Simulated assay, not measured.
Amino acid sequence: MPPMNPEEEYNNRARVADSAAIIARWLSDAAAFRAAWPRKRLDIRYGDTEPELLDLFLPETDGPCPLALFIHGGYWQALDRTAASHFARGLLLRGVAVAVPSYGLCPQVPLATIVEQMRRAAAVLCLTTRQRMLAMGHSAGGHLSAMLLASDFPAFAAGLPKDVVPAALPISGVFEIEPVLPTGIGRGLNLTPEAARALSPRWLPPPGGVLHAVVGGAESAEFLRQTHDFSAAWGGTAEEIPGANHFTVLDPLTDPDHPLTARAAGMARRLASL
C-alpha cells in the first residue's frame, strides 16, 4: 500500500469541493437561527479574554431541561460560535438546552489554553445551572469534547463534581494530533510531537463515562480510523453517517427526528442534575 498522505487525509476543505459554500451557508443559517429562536441568552462571558463568550439556547417549554455543550470546529484555528448556532435546533426541539461557546484560536492562543477555556466554559455552566452536561463537538470541537470527558473538574475549580461532563458525543473528531503535524494545518498549531501526544485523547487513560463517536461515511480513511480506534480504546461506541462528508455529517443535528439527534437527546437526559 502507498504511504498515507497526511495533507490529503486531513485537509477537509481541500477534500470537499464545495466546503467553502457549506461554511458560508452555516454562517447564514446560524445568524438566522440566533435571530429567530425565542428563548436565548447571547454573549454570556465565561472568562476574561475577548473570545470567551457563549450563547445559551433554551427549549420553548418552561421547566427543567437537560443540557448539552456544542463546540465548533475549524482545526482550532478558524470559526467561532456564530458558525454553529443552528446545530442546536434538533436538540432544542427535543427539550434539551444547548450552550455554544467560542474560544481563542491558534496560533495566537496555544492549544493547551483552548482546552482550559473549554473546561472553564463547562465549569461556569455547571456552577450557574447546577447541571452536568453532554459535551458535543465537531472536528476540533470533537477533540475538545473528548478532552472534557477526560477532565478532572475538582482539580480545575473548587466546588465542582468530578463528572461535570459524564458523556461526550464527538463528531468527526481529531483524537490523535501527531499525524496532523506535517500538514499545513498542523504547522499552525506550533506543537512538538510530545506536546501533540499529551493533548491527544486517544493516548489518555479511558476516563469512564459514556462515549459515542460519530464520523461521516464518506470521510477520509484517517478520520474513519481515528474515530474507530479512539472509541475502541475508550470502550465507547462508534457510528458512521452513510454518505456524509466532514461537513454534511452535521446536517442531522438540525432535524429533531434524525436518529443521531434522538441519541444525543437521550444521552443528555440520562445525566442527573447536581
Score class of each variant (00 low, 15 high):
252 P>L: 09
34 R>W: 01
227 T>D: 07
161 P>S: 10
195 A>K: 03
60 E>Y: 06
76 W>M: 05
273 S>M: 12
41 R>S: 02
136 M>E: 10
45 R>W: 02
156 F>H: 09
139 S>K: 05
32 A>S: 13
157 A>H: 12
94 R>E: 11
141 G>L: 00
184 G>E: 11
70 F>A: 03
97 A>I: 03
111 L>F: 10
124 V>T: 13
184 G>M: 08
143 H>T: 06
74 G>Q: 08
238 A>I: 11
110 P>Q: 07
219 E>A: 01
245 N>S: 08
86 H>A: 12
236 G>F: 04
263 R>K: 13
274 L>Y: 08
201 P>A: 09
66 P>W: 03
157 A>W: 09
96 V>P: 07
112 A>D: 07
104 G>I: 03
27 L>Q: 15
74 G>S: 11
226 Q>R: 05
48 D>T: 15
133 M>P: 06
203 W>R: 15
224 L>M: 11
139 S>W: 03
162 K>L: 12
126 C>M: 02
164 V>P: 01
224 L>G: 05
50 E>A: 15
70 F>V: 07
262 A>I: 14
252 P>C: 10
107 P>T: 15
134 L>M: 13
264 A>R: 10
231 S>A: 15
8 E>T: 08
97 A>V: 00
263 R>A: 11
146 A>D: 01
165 V>T: 06
189 L>S: 10
89 R>I: 10
21 A>W: 00
58 L>C: 05
51 P>F: 01
153 F>Q: 02
62 D>A: 12
260 L>C: 06
180 V>K: 02
16 V>F: 00
